[in-house]
Structure formats: structure tokens, C-alpha cells
Design a protein around this nucleic acid. Structure first.
Length: 189
DNA sequence: CCGCCGATCTTT
DNA sequence: AAGATCGGCGGG
């Protein structure tokens, strides 16, 4: 069986390759359609650039771990830790296409009037799948984890769009955001 | 459809 | 004091 994606590579290498892979959570599963890479000490937009803190500890662990943080006091964001152990790199999952819109997902996203609004954003997908801080630090490859990553063979290069990251006040020109070309499930820009 | 603004609270 | 966001509101 061939290796699909080597998570210990740099986040900017891993992020585009994660498009198409499946993220499983307590409420259901979704196909990853949008990602962003965050680097280590050299990336001022990355949480890890200010050094190891209690919050960012999972980022400095081995690749393949889940990093979940609270943003704006009310939403969660889910990241796949990548790169060498101790480097502090991660890939933010920004949008998923539900494999199936489960009733649990609908209950978790009462504000979503249209199906495409159920998980088209980093905070929305965590709500939809039921991911929160209690899952921070989980091993995404372990069958015992509530949140798991099912790696799928990378989509062809020409099906990915590369552009700049969203919502930042620094490093706004770094083109480390990728999404599936033509997908209706990508976050609004 | 678009832009603005407030919510809410952890982290620095 | 700011932040890797979201949704409601008002205007065009």
C-alpha cells in the first residue's frame, strides 16, 4: 500500500494534498475542500510564531495530531499538525463537503438555512461535526479518537486553486490557501 | 448581493 | 487589546 500524504512534510506541502481527504467527527464526516497552511517560527500569522504556550502545545507535537483552538470567544477551529516534531506547523481545515448531511449536523447548525452553509467555514465545520476543545491533541490516525482523518489520494494539481489566506492582519500576501476548483462548499471570500 | 458591526472570552 | 469567525441588519 503506497503512502498517501506524508504529514511530516511542511504545512505548505501538506495543505494542498489534504484536499479530498475525509474528516470524521462526532456528528458525521466531510470531504475537505479548503485548507490553509500555517508555518512555524518564521510565519508571523501562525500561533506558534510566539513560541510554545499552553494553548499551542499540540502544534509543537508530532505530525498527525489535532489542534483545536477557540476563536473570538465562541467558535472553534480545527488544524492538522504537520512538519517535523517541535516545529509548530499546522494545516487549518477551512471547509468541508458533508459526505452526508446527518440530522446531528443539522441540529448542530440551526443557523444554516441552505445546505451549503452547513460547513463552509472553519468555525462552521467544527460546529457541524461537533469538534471542540475537548478534542484538542487527539491522534487523528487512532481508531479510538472521536476526530479522525481519512487520507485519500491527492486530487490532480489542476483541480486545486492556490491563493492568499483569509482573515489575517499580517503575512497577507503569503499564498498558502488552497481549495477545490469549482466546489460550492468552499467558504465565502 | 454587499458591507458593517456586535457577540463573546481566551490569550498575550 | 486583539483575534486563522459568524450572522443579523440595513442599504442598493
Amino acid at each position: 500500500m503506497r503512502t498517501l500524504v506524508d504529514l511530516s512534510q511542511h504545512s505548505s506541502i501538506v495543505a494542498p494534498k489534504l484536499l479530498g481527504s475525509i474528516l470524521h467527527g462526532p456528528n458525521g464526516s466531510g470531504r475537505i475542500v479548503e485548507t490553509e497552511a500555517y508555518g512555524g517560527a518564521d510565519d508571523p500569522a501562525s500561533h506558534s510564531s510566539r513560541g510554545l504556550t499552553p494553548r499551542t502545545e499540540p502544534m509543537f507535537g508530532p505530525a498527525g495530531v489535532l489542534y483545536v483552538y477557540l476563536i473570538y470567544g465562541m467558535y472553534h477551529c480545527a488544524n492538522v499538525v504537520t512538519g517535523p516534531d517541535g516545529d509548530g506547523q499546522a494545516v487549518l481545515i477551512r471547509a468541508i463537503e458533508p459526505v452526508e448531511v446527518t440530522t446531528a449536523m443539522q441540529r448542530a447548525r440551526p443557523k444554516a438555512r441552505r445546505e451549503i452553509d452547513i460547513a463552509n467555514g472553519p468555525g462552521k465545520l467544527c460546529q457541524a461535526l461537533g469538534i471542540d476543545r475537548s478534542h484538542d491533541g487527539e491522534d487523528l490516525a487512532s481508531p479510538n479518537s472521536a476526530v479522525r482523518l481519512e487520507l485519500v489520494e491527492s486530487t490532480p494539481r489542476d483541480e486545486r486553486v492556490q491563493t492568499t489566506r483569509i482573515g489575517l492582519s499580517v503575512a497577507t500576501e503569503t499564498p498558502w490557501r488552497w481549495y477545490l476548483r469549482g466546489s460550492a462548499w468552499v467558504s465565502k471570500t
